[in-house]
Design a protein around this nucleic acid. Structure first.
Length: 198
DNA sequence: AGAGAGATGATCT
DNA sequence: GATCATCTCTCTA
């Protein structure tokens, strides 16, 4: 097995096995991992878990054309259109009966910052990937990558080498099941969509 | 710093 | 016809 070397990344490449677990394990384990698309991206600082047992999940009401990737095997990318304007990206996890996924909400930019600035048309690094729609714009993720394997080019995800301090909170921007503490973040990160309550 | 509104389209009722 | 896992701008302070 030849391992591709990425400057500044030492963790092993994550494969489908990593995602073939409960979304409640995968989500916190992704904090500190490195996500690259075509070599551009950074350290995952914020994610949210969605599980078919609660009404905020797209899979709650069963399969539809939009969410069918969620009902497939773990380790694939689910991309959907948000508010008619933005894209949001999710990692499909073990189904546990129905379907679940992790929403990528924020990244600390480390690779290809110049490209991200061009795509986002902003210069402030803290504003490049601090929200799910921003992440997709900066990494150029759209419906063309819906259903794509998470361990195949152009997507690369590398495990963190050390477990960071993780904070949790309620999910953002939803109205249903808004009390579940399924938002995970890198403690004290400056690259979040919103601070976590102290 | 925080509130409010508009953009814009697929999905669901 | 209403909702929506969002972002950016503008207004008020």
């Amino acid at each position: 097995m030849s391992e591709k070397r990425i400057e500044g990344v030492t963790g092993r490449a994550l494969t489908k096995r990593f995602f073939s677990r409960s979304v409640h394990k995968v989500a916190p384990d992704l904090i500190g991992a490195t996500l690259l698309v075509n070599g551009i991206g950074g350290i995952i600082t914020e994610v949210e878990a969605y599980h078919h047992t609660e009404p905020a999940a797209h899979s709650y009401r069963g399969p539809t054309p939009r969410n069918m990737v969620m009902f497939g095997p773990a380790g694939y990318l689910y991309v959907y259109r948000s508010y008619g304007i933005h894209w949001c990206m999710n990692f499909v996890c073990e189904k546990e009966g129905s379907a679940s996924a992790v929403l990528v909400r924020a990244i600390e930019p480390t690779h290809g910052i110049a490209s991200m600035r061009r795509r986002r048309r902003v210069s402030d690094e803290r504003n490049l990937c601090s929200g799910p729609g921003k992440v997709c714009e900066a990494l150029s993720v759209s419906d063309k990558l819906n259903g794509h394997a998470l361990d195949k080019s152009p997507i690369e995800i590398f495990a963190r080498t050390r477990k960071p301090e993780i904070v949790t909170g309620v999910r953002i921007g939803i109205t249903k099941a808004a009390d579940l503490p399924w938002r995970y973040g890198l403690k004290d990160s400056r690259f979040l969509s919103k601070p976590f309550a102290a």
